[in-house]
């Protein structure tokens, strides 16, 4: 530090203070705008839109809640088979989703895509499309195509999984270490062997982790596919709802929770086994 540096740094300090002040004002403005926006949203959606009269005040709500809390345990034995059905749909949907993800990931990974100008954007687009359409909408579309039943539910679950699985897979493919791949080429391996020995071992743990993660989510998604007549816990839920048997509804919700907890335990061990 030299002596002549002092005025310069004093000037710098002023600038720093001014910068800081500007930033503080900006931050305040941002906060104020956000608060105003949220307050307006709150008023418009909740205060304005809600039919407070019809809700029947605190008493009405309390009454409904009470009916939910009186759990109808008699339904319990009838839940085992639907729970299994839900699990089946989730598993089939995940597997099918993996199958669909294969070409999408292949197209959408920049280093292996068959064509940079056609297949790569196509793959990327399919990834986004799959994620941006809600599973309910996929289900409705597939009901139109194949009719009611388990199939549209499974297809919807599969389509919704494609986006995530293929995106992660494509990223894993893009991040592989090219050196082992080169080694397999150098020993005279063909295209399949290069993929199977050079690429697959490198991306396998990531893919399996993703599939397990997605399977977990798909259990929850299949639990609502009763909407399209796909059976499982979803169907029981909608039936109980239609019968206004709220105690039964609560039990179904609890059953979903238990199922997911079981799924989480299974995926915990599965993950440990592969990694």
């Amino acid at each position: 530090m030299s002596i002549t540096a002092a005025p310069v740094s004093a000037h710098g300090f002023d600038a720093y203070l001014a910068h800081k002040r500007r930033r503080r004002i900006n931050n305040w403005l941002l906060v104020a705008c956000s608060v105003a926006l949220l307050a307006w949203c709150f008023w418009d959606t909740i205060m304005f839109d809600t039919d407070w009269q019809r809700m029947g005040g605190a008493l009405g709500i309390g009454g409904t809640l009470e009916r939910f809390l009186l759990i109808d345990w008699s339904l319990l034995p009838k839940l085992l088979v639907p729970a299994l059905e839900t699990l089946m749909m989730a598993t089939l949907g995940t597997i099918l989703g993996c199958v669909f993800s294969l070409p999408v990931a292949w197209f959408g990974a920049a280093n292996v895509t068959p064509s940079k100008y056609f297949f790569y954007p196509l793959g990327r687009f399919l990834m986004v499309l799959s994620r941006s359409i809600h599973e309910i909408i996929w289900a409705l579309l597939f009901v139109g195509a194949v009719g009611l039943g388990a199939l549209p539910g499974i297809l919807a679950v599969a389509m919704r999984s494609v986006g995530f699985i293929s995106k992660i897979t494509a990223e894993a493919i893009e991040n592989i270490d090219p050196k082992p791949v080169e080694a397999i080429r150098a020993v005279g391996g063909n295209q399949f062997q290069v993929m199977y020995y050079g690429i697959v071992p490198q991306i396998l743990p990531v893919i399996i982790g993703t599939i397990i993660f997605e399977w977990d989510i798909n259990i929850r998604r299949s639990a609502i596919m009763g909407l399209v007549g796909a059976g499982g816990l979803g169907l029981v839920f909608f039936r109980q709802m239609a019968m206004f048997n709220y105690g039964g509804v609560t039990l179904v919700v609890l059953a979903v929770l238990v199922l997911i907890a079981i799924g989480e335990v299974i995926s915990h061990y599965a993950r440990k086994a592969v990694i």
Binding site: D177, P180, A183, Y197, P201, L204, P205
Partner: peptide, 10 residues
């Protein structure tokens, strides 16, 4: 190869 180029997970 210089960096062995083994498939690490095999």
């Amino acid at each position: 190869f210089q960096e062995f180029n083994l498939v690490n997970r095999m």
